[in-house]
Design a protein around this nucleic acid. Structure first.
Length: 422
RNA sequence: GUGGGUGUAGCUCAGUUGGCAGAGCACUGGGUUGUGAUCCCAGGUGUCGCGGGUUCAAGUCCCGUCACUCACCCCA
């Protein structure tokens, strides 16, 4: 039999665990805004054919070339734990013919994704995302809707210290030409070997280099937004107009880069300054070629992925309470076995009536049970002892102001209901 | 993949020139078998990350190793 490792079992490297209610509160708040805009839930597989990501995300990306959890299953097939959501959504849309119905197809997903990276603040090997995709209609109003859904999610959580950075990466007709122009510019710059290699593989990525000596050289580098086709420029202008109408604030960042190859036209990132090095709490954009690349119709799509882990960190950085402190509304405090027997039933009755309730288990003393009631966050305690049982009553105590009222045991559930909802 | 920092109680940490392993918080019980959040008293846990070395003696010094963490890179 396998041994227990020294120091005990621990979760795999770089994987956060969330014990309190905060994580679920953040995730569900983000999902709720997608639901409100009509995005339907899609439950995706956690692993897919490795080729799906190689084709969809792009062989030259870091995500595919060095961060994937890939392995051979028992049948010898190469599979990969999903590093992102869009490729899987598009595959599902094509496989199930969803693009044959009413367009756009609007879907949302939530769950864990996996990237083999060195962990640090806000960067995990198992990361949690909420995402949406709107596929099949190339309408700038949809780009704006997607952005508004993400923005509404952040606002619903109470976040204020973030900004939306926006740009356009152009379309398939003009991007290759711009790319060549940028590469010619970069060849004339004084760059180290690693950066030259980057300029060869993905020249756009050099544009957002953080080093001052590189930035200085790139001050008048050619930018994509100045080389857009008429159609792409018109699309970009329309997106900004709709954002204004939706009341979504943004700043233009023409040097923004995405690490996934499929983005075209609208590209964006939500940035929060309270997180340290990993400041992106969400990102996404439009992808014109992905459907066709994965064997479907030549349809465009647009979507985002929000990092739930980082959004939670952002909430904490802003000191926000994202989850209610109240675990339950009512807490039962039994004095003795007979009282406990009654309270077990009463608590069950309260729960069936939709009231969150708990009680002190394990035969704790009165003081300990009251303490547990306090810690539970309950507004009310139900105190029951032999004296009450004989009299057919129960004590309903308001833990906020300390007042206590005696009610008939038979009316206890109704009295609690009035107290909680009144 | 590259570089820095840190590993002592459940948590946050202190521990002097090497000399008995500590505090606060939290938890449990009691003061008060009929009242919590305040107060008082009591209680307990440690392979000092792990392995080796130096020494009469190592939490402390040396070597190795692992883990965590921050940053580069990359991205959510």
């Amino acid at each position: 039999m396998a041994d227990i490792p020294p120091g005990g079992f621990v979760a795999p490297k770089g994987i956060p665990e969330y014990v309190g209610p905060d994580f679920v509160a953040v995730r569900d708040t983000l999902v709720r805004e997608a639901d409100r805009a009509g995005y339907a839930h899609l439950e995706l597989p956690v692993f897919e054919d490795t080729a799906l990501y190689a084709r969809g995300v792009g062989e030259s990306t870091d995500v595919v070339s060095k961060e994937m959890y890939s392995f051979a299953d028992r049948g010898g097939r190469s599979v990969t734990l999903r590093p992102e959501g869009t490729a899987g959504v598009v595959r599902s849309v094509i496989e199930h013919g969803m693009d044959r119905g009413t367009l756009p197809v609007k879907l949302r997903y939530a769950g864990p994704f996996f990237r083999y990276e060195r962990p640090q603040a806000g960067r995990y090997r198992q990361l949690q995302q909420v995402g949406v995709e709107a596929i099949g209609v190339d309408d700038p109003a949809l780009d704006a809707e997607v952005l508004a859904v993400a923005d509404a999610g952040f606002r619903a959580l109470g976040l204020t210290g973030y900004r939306l950075e926006l740009t356009s990466l152009g379309d398939a007709e003009t991007r290759p030409e711009y790319r060549a122009t940028l590469q010619r510019f970069l060849e004339k710059c004084d760059l180290d070997e690693a950066t030259r290699e980057r300029a060869r593989i993905n020249p756009l990525r050099v544009l957002d280099d953080k080093r001052p000596e590189v930035r200085d050289q790139l001050a008048d580098a050619p930018l994509m937004v100045d080389h857009l086709s008429d159609a792409a420029a018109a699309h970009h202008a329309k997106v900004k107009q709709y954002l204004d109408e939706l009341g979504v604030a943004y700043t233009e960042n023409p040097r923004m880069v995405r690490g996934l190859d499929y983005y075209t036209k609208t590209t964006f990132e939500f940035v929060h300054d309270g997180l340290g090095s990993q400041s992106g709490i969400g990102g996404g954009g439009r992808y014109d070629g992905l459907m066709a690349e994965l064997g479907g119709q030549a349809l465009s799509g647009v979507g985002f992925g929000i990092g739930v882990d980082r959004t939670l960190l952002a909430c904490r950085a802003e000191g926000l309470d994202v989850a209610p402190a109240r675990r339950v509304e009512v807490f039962g405090v039994p004095l003795g076995e007979a009282a406990k027997d009654h309270l077990v039933g009463l608590v069950g009755q309260l729960r069936r009536a939709g009231i969150r309730a708990d009680l002190a288990y394990g035969g704790r003393g009165l003081k300990g049970a009251m303490k547990a009631a306090d810690r539970s966050g309950a507004r009310y305690a139900l105190v029951l002892g032999d004296r009450d049982l004989e009299a057919g009553t129960i004590q309903l105590k308001d833990l906020g102001d300390g007042s206590q009222t005696e009610v008939a045991l038979a009316d206890a559930a109704a009295a609690v209901d009035r107290a909680v909802h009144g």
